[in-house]
């Protein structure tokens, strides 16, 4: 759908406690436009628990239940069961969690809810760190990135959450990014129409967490896709389709932009460029990304 045709209704109200340039609110605005008023949102500990603002106020114009860090999917399962019992079939249950709450502490509850075929949409907005607690490493943090708990740069590569999700063989899963609003909107819209568990992960570049200037949020997401650090794809009934530029990269119709282009504007990779370029680590990440694409090409062309 073209941007101008997106619903005009806003469910994220101005005046929230989000940082300026926050990608989570960009994502949430678009997601809720796609889902509409008849949505119940479950939010575990994450930036959104702050963004929603202080009691007795709220920034969200839909009913929201906060829940403990690891409990989003389980809480949502309870909401969904209650809705089914009440015969309210037209309400969408949205679990909205960060990468810490998804890749790490919430993984068990998420896996359980997917396996039990819970009829809900689980969205992970992935900013690749625990940003709400002050930029600590998560299972989604990329190799070599500085965080407050990986001071010299993370030593491990990030987890492939998409693979874990697909191992559950749910009817729909997708990766998208805030920089491609039509892709994001369409994927959420598609998920809304499908019965059963749906998983969508949105790359949300975080200005204070990644250490870039706040007007660059959208640009950083675009560069993540163009360098192949992040892929736009969807998986419907076990059939994976790559979308947009990621499809062109997959089919070798365009070349990935060198990963340095994405890294250089980010302060969290500064130690790889200053005082001296760390060729070894940049190459290691580049090769890791290439390996992922080789795997994608092997399985999904």
């Amino acid at each position: 759908m073209a941007i101008k045709d997106f619903p005009i209704e806003e469910y994220v109200l101005p005046g929230s406690a989000a940082c300026p340039g926050c990608p989570a609110t960009i994502a949430l605005r678009i997601v809720l436009k796609a889902l509409g008023k008849k949505t119940v949102m479950i939010v575990p500990a994450c930036c959104t628990a702050v963004i929603e603002s202080l009691y007795p106020h709220t920034s969200f114009n839909i009913p929201v239940m906060n829940i403990a860090f690891e409990a989003a999917a389980a809480g949502a399962a309870g909401v969904e069961a209650a809705l089914r019992k009440l015969g309210k079939n037209d309400v969408t249950v949205l679990a909205w969690a960060g990468d810490g709450g998804t890749y790490d502490i919430g993984l068990q509850a998420l896996s359980g809810a997917l396996e039990r075929e819970t009829n809900f949409i689980y969205i992970c907005y992935n900013n690749q760190i625990y940003s709400n607690t002050g930029i600590q490493r998560s299972g989604a943090t990329p190799y070599a990135a500085w965080t407050t708990t990986t001071v010299g740069g993370k030593k491990e590569f990030r987890k492939e959450m998409g693979d874990i999700i697909r191992a559950h063989h749910i009817p729909y899963s997708a990766q998208t990014c805030i920089s491609y609003p039509d892709d994001l909107y369409n994927k959420v819209k598609k998920a809304k129409e499908i019965e059963g568990p749906k998983y969508i992960e949105i790359l949300t570049p975080c200005p204070p967490g990644w250490r870039f200037s706040m007007e660059k949020t959208v640009e950083m997401g675009r560069l993540a896709v163009e360098t192949g650090v992040w892929a736009l794809y969807e998986c419907k009934n076990d059939v994976v389709t790559f979308n947009g530029k990621s499809r062109l990269i997959l089919e070798n119709k365009i070349k990935r932009v060198p990963i340095e282009e994405w890294m250089r504007p980010q302060g969290r990779f500064k130690h790889l460029f200053v005082p001296k370029k760390d060729v070894k680590r940049i190459k290691a990440l580049e090769e890791h990304i290439e390996k992922i694409w080789e795997r994608y090409r092997k399985y999904y062309i």
Partner: peptide
């Protein structure tokens, strides 16, 4: 939790 009364429960206090 009610879609006709969009209240946020359990936010920062």
């Amino acid at each position: 939790l009610d879609i006709n009364n969009p209240v946020t429960f359990g936010n920062i206090i």
